[in-house]
């Protein structure tokens, strides 16, 4: 790819004062204000949500932060098959598989990390999982991080998250936030 060098031009006094642009911006706000005042109920009316006092309810299939689903004994359902990592277009899932000492489960994730800073929330990992071990039904937005390392969420943290109340039930340990956990 050819590299294009562009001269950085300095701003004129008119631009540097920023005042005209501030006025222009306020103009847009005022236009919306009066439009909404006059045309209430018409197609011109702009619907707004009084965030943060009001929050929109997300659709059921909203993809929030991932979580790992537990088995009844609390261990992750994940069998470290790498299918999520294979499907991931952002290469944000890092798994280290290990041989489980239990006879019933052969393979388990020694490490399961998702780099939320790389994740593009496409949901391919959820689609790929043959064990229903990973879901994006927590309804949590990506939190803000102070360092890149904080953006990497490990197995324990992913397991501790619960799904939203309307999430479909999964066979296993406590699964759904609020609402009654299974078996109680």
């Amino acid at each position: 790819m050819a590299l294009r060098v562009r001269e950085r031009t300095s701003m004129s006094l008119y631009e540097r004062s920023f005042l005209p642009e501030v006025v222009r911006g306020l103009g847009v706000t005022l236009r919306h204000f009066f439009t909404n005042l006059i045309f209430r109920g018409s197609w011109r009316y702009t619907e707004t949500v009084r965030y943060p006092f009001e929050k929109r309810t997300y659709p059921e299939r909203f993809r929030g932060q991932h979580r790992l689903l537990p088995r009844e004994d609390g261990s992750p359902r994940c069998v470290a098959c790498y299918l999520c990592a294979t499907a991931c277009p952002a290469y944000c899932i890092h798994i280290v598989a290990g041989e489980s000492p239990e006879r019933a489960v052969e393979k388990y994730p020694v490490a399961f990390e998702i780099d939320l800073l790389r994740c593009i929330y496409c949901g391919f990992c959820v689609e790929a999982c043959p064990e229903d071990a990973i879901r994006m039904d927590t309804g949590i937005h990506t939190p803000a991080f102070l360092s890149r390392e904080d953006g990497v969420v490990g197995r324990v943290d992913l397991l501790s998250l619960l799904g939203r109340p309307q999430t479909p039930e999964a066979f296993g340990a406590q699964n759904v936030r609020e609402g009654k956990p299974r078996g109680q």
């Binding site: 470290a80 098959c81 790498y82 294979t86 598989a97 290990g98 041989e99 393979k107």
Partner: peptide, 9 residues
């Protein structure tokens, strides 16, 4: 080699 790596990688 068991569980070290998936072969398609």
């Amino acid at each position: 080699f068991r569980f070290k790596q998936r072969v398609w990688y």
